[in-house]
Nucleic acid binder design. Sequence first.
DNA 1: CGGTATATTGTAAACGTTTTCAAAACAAGT
DNA 2: ACTTGTTTTGAAAACGTTTACAATATACCG
Lengths: 343, 343
Amino acid sequence: MATIKDVARHANVSIATVSRVVNDYRHVRPAVREVVTKAIAELGYRPNGLASSFRTQQSNIVGVLLRQQRTPFSSALAYAIENTMFDQGYRVLLCSTNGDAEREAAYLETMLDMRVQGIIIRPSGTGQRMAKQISTLRDRGVAVAFVDMKPRLANAASSVVCDNFSGGYQGMRHLIELGHRRIGVVAGAVAQKGGAADVGSERVRGIRQAAADLTSDVEITYSAPFDSASFEVGREVGAALITSQPGLTAIFATTDMLALGVMHSAHALGLDLPRDMSILGYDGVMESAVTFPTLSTIAQPIHEMGQIAATTLIDHMRGLSTTPRQVVLENTLLQRDSTIRVT
Amino acid sequence: MATIKDVARHANVSIATVSRVVNDYRHVRPAVREVVTKAIAELGYRPNGLASSFRTQQSNIVGVLLRQQRTPFSSALAYAIENTMFDQGYRVLLCSTNGDAEREAAYLETMLDMRVQGIIIRPSGTGQRMAKQISTLRDRGVAVAFVDMKPRLANAASSVVCDNFSGGYQGMRHLIELGHRRIGVVAGAVAQKGGAADVGSERVRGIRQAAADLTSDVEITYSAPFDSASFEVGREVGAALITSQPGLTAIFATTDMLALGVMHSAHALGLDLPRDMSILGYDGVMESAVTFPTLSTIAQPIHEMGQIAATTLIDHMRGLSTTPRQVVLENTLLQRDSTIRVT
DNA sequence: CGGTATATTGTAAACGTTTTCAAAACAAGT
DNA sequence: ACTTGTTTTGAAAACGTTTACAATATACCG
């Protein structure tokens, strides 16, 4: 591999000049620039990224730390982030923690060791271990942006989230407006109890609020509590809900994958969808469009989330805006075929 | 940030000794090792990854270049690779080209500039531009492994693929054994014509061979040709196929997402699945398990593919095995609810 | 033409590590 | 004690850039 020295020798200039040409600095005579450019081409010189990263003590890599990357939601989010970053010249180190705190810590360490310029994170916990990690990052001068989750302290870091309360509210209103009065809600254990201000809880809060606001005679039945929002779980608790509560006319699942599970169990129990039951999901992942009937859902602007998270981080990294920024995006009802007026 | 110098001073040894402790070399007296370790802990020293990568001229990063990462197949593959790499201490730079050749080239350049140790690639084209790129990689001493696609010349690089011919064969045999004789096949334009030895063509070849081998009275109808194997496309060509060929008892789609589309259109046309029509997919992605009825499919061992690609690459990077290795994995029929004996 | 400002170039130091080489310390055999 | 061999340590060079600084060339002004 040709180095900058070779180019300098070949073009009869100093390495400083070559560096200036490569990095497109001013103060290089056009003639010289041309000679150097030719030398670079002739030698097939490519700057050693490792060396320049080392010298400047920063790589053009940003870390993206998500919980899982197998899920449709995470995939779509990661994809949006990667694309935006790519266009801006950054490369993405994508890591999935699988909810494993140790692994999350290990990745964070690696990222620091690699001197990533910034990190986009969807943390696995809200605990103080996390808070400590964030402050470590801050000390190290690494830009941080949260996505799909707010930091505990609003000024700790930027974040991009959706208004899950409003989303829950919208979904419930949709069902109520369609005439549904006996509605099942499939939501995780934490969400139902409404402990932390996490995504799920917010949605349930919105659901409750809508019910309280809009009508007096709606009856909400919650599914059995559970921990992970997977298709399998949706199928199980969905089946249980449907068989134990024969009067339900609609089910609102707080995740598309849960909704898919519910839909599957409804089919299996012989229900004719959407005639016998309306089903509403949440997320708007691609999978929700492939079911039969297609799933009505509260769609998150996933692509936009990723994009804004990326641009926010870029702004921080470039020092354009240093104060944390809290972005809240709106969810929108995607009315498809799985929800109909109650007959 | 404390540097190795600080540690050396603090522990009253030379930086060489600290380096030896950090990198766990022999020839360090236990007593000294302990002192140094303590100094490291006290100062919170962490080796500067950029510096050591620079010095050794290699990072612990491997590049993974896939076509798309939004698709279930790619996601699952990427996930498997990342996990395996993580366990072995490597970090993954995940890039999706979206089939854009320029972007692919750009990523490849970046990877080289970053001095990645190895690259796992699912190239977007079979052209000679690719061949040239591969030889460039080879010249640069970067280990390469193909996944889900063989290199043109078997000894150009290692590869991990599935036996798509056999998979197509198995699928067709399955349908024939179930008594189906009028079978629709949904496959892309290239696959039908059987040009290159790409994944789709191989599957179709297997389908043809099975039909020829196993029975004389099977009648295959191909869908209209198309370019991208998406759900949307599956729905469109599926609908066209079903309406134009009323006698079909089964449809074999060469991709799960296509199959999902076909299933959707069948539902929409009022067919009762699987009674009125059997549908068979290919890939075994998670999505195939969430339909109703659950999709029978020729499952690829996606996780294994990723894992083997990763370990193969690691072997190359570590110099354990230098000769290219061609791994061919078997697909297996995943018999679920969407295929039944013809009545 | 002298002087001053500005544009262009080169020299050399620095970044933090790994690694070669030689020196020092120690052990063991005579 | 005197080799001889082995283990342990340190000094210093190197890796390929970027960049501060100085030096030189050029332009402009009177």
